[in-house]
Design a protein around this nucleic acid. Structure first.
Length: 270
DNA sequence: AAAGACGACAACCGCGATACA
DNA sequence: TTGTATCGCGGTTGTCGTCTT
């Protein structure tokens, strides 16, 4: 099917917004609220396309935006969230009140990437830069089946149903296996997903994900929650997080769960 | 002081997802 | 069920300010 242009390009302004345009947009949205971006420019008397208006509002004009430098805590949270979610900037932004996906994306590319590189960490994989390539490809194979008891409740609180596979994929490189060559290069990486209906009787994450090889990890472990109340498989990943020295007998504090930096249960799409 | 390099960030573009007729 | 319109996301580009030579 053909795609119509989002706007009449010949009659729209491009480039930086002027103060007057900002004022018009703010005034219109204050009066009528957000929504219907397609028709907004005309109604507001702006020679801009709807997409441009939406972006300008979301990234710059919204009153709840927190402008200014990122704090160290925000830095670390972004890093942790990125290690879990990858380049899902909107999801990451959802955990940082007052910050936009665009802002975080820019900040990542200009500051945090360099920061991680200086630490000897690959910003793409969150692994040490000098890590052997083979190890870098080690991935846990998750299989969720109709009997998988990853709770709808728990999972859906992390992302929408349709994003589960993506999250599982992105989680796979975070939860590092021990150095045993389990399913190296993932010849049978099983990303088959069959999500079971939500069970009202099992409020906890009880059954483990099946992993490649003989190892099994529960969902809690896959998020670095070994030995936490959400860990049911009893796996202690001695090497998880070892590169950063954060792995302890009491569990890897991935995402700062223990310190309540992030309550992953509240992770949602914007 | 001027010019080029670099960094930061705003804005644009293309595409997938979703809603709806 | 299918086609179309719209929204929203992520990658990329453009522009401007600052730094370095």
């Amino acid at each position: 099917m053909g795609r119509s242009p989002c706007c009449e390009k010949a009659h729209t302004n491009k480039g930086a917004w002027t103060k007057e345009e900002d004022d018009r947009l703010v005034a219109y949205i204050r009066a009528h609220g957000e929504g219907c971006w397609r028709s907004l420019p005309k109604a507001a008397g702006l020679l801009r396309c709807g997409k441009s208006c939406r972006l300008r509002w979301i990234n710059y004009l919204r009153p709840d935006l927190k402008r200014g430098n990122f704090t160290e805590a925000e830095d670390e949270l972004i890093i942790k969230l990125h290690s879990l979610l990858g380049n899902k900037w909107s999801l990451i932004a959802g955990r940082l009140p007052g910050r936009t996906d665009n802002e975080i994306k820019n900040y990542w590319n200009t500051h945090i990437r360099r920061k991680l590189l200086n630490r000897g960490i690959d910003p793409a994989t969150h692994r040490p830069l000098n890590e052997p390539a083979q190890e870098a490809t080690t991935t846990i194979s998750f299989t969720t089946t109709t009997t998988t008891s990853v709770k709808e409740e728990s999972m859906s609180s992390i992302v929408k149903e349709e994003n589960k596979e993506k999250i599982i994929r992105s989680t796979a490189f975070v939860c590092r296996e021990e150095k045993t060559p389990v399913q190296e290069r993932c010849p049978d990486l099983n990303l088959e997903l069959g999500i079971s209906l939500p069970s009202q009787n099992q409020p906890d994450l009880e059954q483990p994900f099946k992993t490649g090889g003989s190892r099994s990890l529960c969902f809690g472990c896959s998020l670095g929650l070994q030995n936490s109340k959400d860990c049911s498989c009893g796996v202690i990943l001695s090497s998880v997080g070892s590169s950063s020295g954060t792995s302890t007998k009491t569990g890897y504090d991935f995402l700062g769960m223990k310190s309540d930096v992030l309550d992953y249960r509240g992770l949602e799409m914007k």
